[in-house]
Design a binder for these strands. Structure first.
Lengths: 141, 141
DNA sequence: GGAAGATAAGTGTATATACGCATAATTCAA
DNA sequence: TTGAATTATGCGTATATACACTTATCTTCC
């Protein structure tokens, strides 16, 4: 018999640990975790972008994003350069190495998604994604 | 128009950051975050318990739990004592201070839950909890 | 043009997360 | 009974998360 948590936040956090470990293990062969993969994938799609705007895109605290960029920059997967239009801002962009790493990671990510679909069910997975997007869009302040 | 994430894990992690910040802010007046509140609440319910068993209960890595206990022990909210039946094991239990802190936190947690229900909808909140429990119960290894 | 306010980002600090390795105690089997 | 396998935990390391505070730059208004 399935026991749901009384606390919605605790249930969410537990499920996140569970799923994060799964994705992290699947991506480990290319030396990325799911958070880093998401950063690279979104950065590839949004082109050069400032830290604040990118943090908003990722629904992440600005300072958290700043810290998370450091290992990726250190490893040469992304470059942080000046913004010619605003000297306060610094523009993020993938390096060729970052694009190569992302390309290597994509099939692993896709396989993880498909495995999740197979084990949890495509409809439930889809329903979960919708519900999580709705929760994220809910103003809680 | 609502945009769902392609990556289930990324969607889950974003929603967790969002909801965790909400709960953390609501619990801040008593000096706890939602993770610490969950630890104290479950520890109160499960009585003295070893670290490994408690970690399994919390769906948390054993070493993560060990680290998370440190601030709570330092602040005198829980005690880590020897297990008379097995000298390898160490038993966790709330202190009176821990019980008092938990009692002070409960109304704030309850209010946060009710606010979430009001803003996200009780049916959706319940459906989300069920789906997350199902995901947690899904073997992904 | 210059002061006031707004905005972009970095730093210090604290907690959260988990892997790999090490240690100590228990259990089990020959 | 003792050596091997198992189990419970701790520690080193690396990354994730976010708050409060600070600095640098930009914008606006007079």
């Amino acid at each position: 018999m399935l026991r749901t948590d009384r606390c919605s936040c605790h249930g969410l956090r537990k499920a996140t640990r569970h799923l994060t470990q799964f994705y992290d293990q699947r991506l480990a062969p290319v030396g990325l975790n799911i958070g880093q993969y998401a950063l690279l994938a979104h950065l590839a799609a949004r082109g050069p972008i400032g830290i604040g705007a990118f943090a908003a895109t990722m629904a992440m605290d600005r300072t958290t994003l700043g810290r998370n960029l450091q290992p990726l920059e250190r490893d040469g997967l992304l470059a942080i350069g000046p913004d010619p239009a605003d000297r306060r801002s610094r523009l993020l962009a993938l390096t060729p190495e970052g694009e190569a790493r992302l390309a290597a990671a994509r099939p692993l990510w896709r396989a993880a998604q498909e495995d999740l679909d197979a084990r949890f069910g495509p409809e439930r997975t889809q329903a979960l994604r919708v519900m999580l997007a709705e929760l994220l869009a809910t103003d809680l302040a």
